[in-house]
Amino acid sequence: MKEINFDFDKPEDSLGYLLWQTTMQWQRQMNRALEKINLTHTQFVILAALGWLQKKSNAVTQKEIADHSNTDRMMVSKILRTLQKNELIERREHETDTRAKCVFLTPKGREILQKAIEIKTLSNNTFFSKLSDPANFGQELRKITGN
């Protein structure tokens, strides 16, 4: 049988592998921190996207949330249903587009989002404290993501 040849000596020499491992570790830490307020990290991302978009508009649609969070529309729909069931958001008919619904944070949703932001900030600070230059790391990540 022919041997498989990798372009590195060990997995830790691969930037892709390291990024994947780091991302998985970070997501686990975020989920553990957010479970205190009964949120998953993905639910937080969708709530945060909605909160951010509502700063600029009173008519935020599911499509805008998906686009802003760079998340699959079907997944956003499923998460929004859960958030609605948990009374963190509500959906209403769009004033001009009969095909669309607008999504709003409820008062409970605003309170939970604010708590989640505080939890997430503390958790991020702890996680990234191992870096010698977090600001530069952020700049390098922005180069990759194009932001």
Rank of each mutant, 00 (worst) to 15 (best):
I46L: 06
I79K: 11
Q62W: 01
W52V: 11
H41F: 15
E111W: 06
I119A: 03
L113I: 03
E90K: 13
L105T: 00
E64F: 00
K36P: 00
Q43I: 03
Q62P: 01
L34Y: 06
A100W: 07
L39W: 08
A48P: 02
S57D: 02
D97M: 14
T42G: 05
Q62H: 04
H68A: 11
T71N: 08
K120I: 13
S77P: 01
T126D: 14
Q84Y: 04
T42W: 05
N125I: 01
M30F: 03
L34E: 06
W52I: 05
R91K: 14
E87P: 02
L39Q: 07
D67P: 04
H41N: 14
L105G: 02
T40N: 07
E93K: 15
R110M: 05
S14A: 11
V103C: 11
T82E: 08
L88D: 05
Q84C: 05
N70I: 11
F44S: 05
Q25I: 14
E95G: 04
A59V: 02
M24K: 15
L122Y: 14
G51V: 00
K85F: 01
H94M: 00
L83C: 03
Y17R: 09
E118W: 06
Q43H: 10
D97W: 13
E95F: 07
V76R: 11
I37Y: 06
I89P: 03
Q84P: 00
K56C: 03
E35P: 03
E111N: 11
N125S: 12
L80R: 10
T42M: 09
T22V: 10
W26G: 00
R81H: 12
V60I: 01
T96F: 13
M75D: 04
M24W: 08
G16N: 10
L47G: 03
R28G: 06
Q43K: 09
Q21N: 11
T82W: 05
W26H: 12
S123W: 03
T61Q: 07
I37D: 02
T40Y: 01
L83F: 07
E118V: 12
L53A: 09
G51K: 08
K115N: 10
R110D: 02
E35V: 03
L19C: 08
T126S: 13
A116M: 01
S123G: 09
N86Y: 02
F104H: 15
G16T: 13
T23L: 14
T61L: 05
K108M: 02
V76L: 07
M75F: 10
R92F: 09
N125K: 12
F44K: 06
K36M: 05
W52P: 00
G109Y: 04
V103I: 10
Q21Y: 13
M75R: 15
W26P: 00
E87K: 09
S123D: 11
T126H: 15
K101Q: 15
G109T: 02
N124A: 14
A49M: 01
M74Y: 12
L39S: 08
T98K: 15
L18C: 13
M74G: 13
